[in-house]
Simulated assay, not measured.
Amino acid sequence: MKKISLVLAILIVLLAATVSWSQQKVFTRPVTIVCASAAGGGTDQTNRGLAEGMKETLGVQVNVINMPGGGMAIGMDYVWGKPHDGSTILGVSETALFLPGFGGHHTTAKDWQWFWAGGSPGVVLVPMQSKYKTFMDIVDDAKARPGQVKVAASGHPSVWSIKWIAITTSIGIKTNDLVYGGSAPSVTAGLTGEVDVVHVSAGEALQYMQAKKLRPLVATEVEPVNIPGIGTMQPITDMFPDLKKVLPMPQMLGMAIPINTPQPIKDTITRAFTVAMTTDAMKRILEAQVATPFGLSGEKANSLSKSLESQFNWALVDLKLAKKNPAALGIAKP
């Protein structure tokens, strides 16, 4: 009887502690989202929308700072080095999932809890005054002048740069691929005539397409893409069916926290993220990005991230771009 009473007493104490924890305010200081890409791009805009939508649930101000560089590794390092208490969140895109094979960061997808808000399709664009009227014009010129057609495809690695390399490798052309610090400066390079071709997301170039400053030629996807005010873009796989072997290679916009963040904190951030995804402001941001809303968190987000990490890093091996063997990092083949 005494043993039963002791067990009951312990259970009551544990229950009281659990209730006490749940009643505590998880956050008492402002939360910072460290966006690992430059201001103005899709990752930045998405995280600013999430920050605004999360603050009511978290009960504190949510600030956003930009810390680009190293293919997102600088921002990842900063967040990883902070206490894993949810007060510092990583604003991130799918670029982070390429980093293991590049040796860009010591973590892999399994080390983070991911939150994916949405993603926008890729498009190939040229300045309105460009001599290129179709994507095949670019292909023909690149074949005639190998390595001379200048292309801006965001930073390296990024889904836009790696996807572009995969596309050009598959169809047998070589271009002069210039590295920029994100999609926003890549678009600027196209607007100023610094490059001949731009490959970024439809959302990151939407206002310039609608203003008739950039002309979209093809969607780097496997399905047609409808761009508001522009029309339906043909998928590149219609012209080059073999590209279905490497595509789709999707953009993912969202945030992440270290996987060993205490569960009550992860639960609170998950609730805040879920609420943020329902706000009108967030819906408008994703719509302006021509983005498909995902709203993925928990195991669904983590499972997808590991799958994409596998696809991306083994693609690096196939393209002879990998600096580290994915298998040695515990990343299985797709």
Rank of each mutant, 00 (worst) to 15 (best):
119 G>T: 06
120 S>N: 02
120 S>V: 04
121 P>T: 01
122 G>R: 06
123 V>A: 15
124 V>H: 04
124 V>F: 14
125 L>C: 13
127 P>N: 14
128 M>V: 13
128 M>G: 00
130 S>Y: 12
130 S>Q: 08
132 Y>S: 05
133 K>M: 09
134 T>V: 05
135 F>G: 01
137 D>T: 08
138 I>H: 04
138 I>C: 08
139 V>I: 12
140 D>R: 15
141 D>T: 13
142 A>Y: 01
142 A>K: 03
143 K>Q: 12
143 K>V: 00
143 K>H: 11
145 R>G: 01
148 Q>L: 11
152 A>F: 09
152 A>S: 15
152 A>K: 10
154 S>D: 14
155 G>K: 10
155 G>D: 14
156 H>N: 15
157 P>K: 06
157 P>F: 09
158 S>D: 07
158 S>E: 07
159 V>R: 09
159 V>H: 07
160 W>M: 15
160 W>K: 06
162 I>M: 09
162 I>G: 03
163 K>I: 00
163 K>V: 00
164 W>N: 09
165 I>H: 11
165 I>D: 11
166 A>F: 07
166 A>S: 14
169 T>V: 04
169 T>H: 15
170 S>V: 03
171 I>C: 07
171 I>N: 07
174 K>E: 14
174 K>I: 10
174 K>R: 15
175 T>H: 04
177 D>F: 09
178 L>T: 06
178 L>W: 05
178 L>G: 02
184 A>S: 09
184 A>N: 01
186 S>N: 02
186 S>K: 03
186 S>L: 04
186 S>C: 03
188 T>S: 13
189 A>W: 06
191 L>S: 10
193 G>Y: 09
193 G>S: 12
193 G>N: 08
193 G>P: 12
193 G>R: 11
194 E>M: 11
195 V>N: 05
195 V>T: 09
195 V>Y: 09
197 V>R: 02
198 V>C: 08
199 H>M: 13
200 V>L: 02
201 S>V: 01
201 S>C: 04
203 G>N: 08
203 G>P: 06
206 L>H: 05
207 Q>F: 01
207 Q>D: 11
208 Y>P: 02
209 M>L: 14
209 M>C: 02
210 Q>R: 13
212 K>G: 00
213 K>W: 00
213 K>H: 08
214 L>H: 07
214 L>K: 06
216 P>T: 10
219 A>L: 05
219 A>R: 05
220 T>F: 10
220 T>Y: 08
223 E>W: 11
224 P>Y: 06
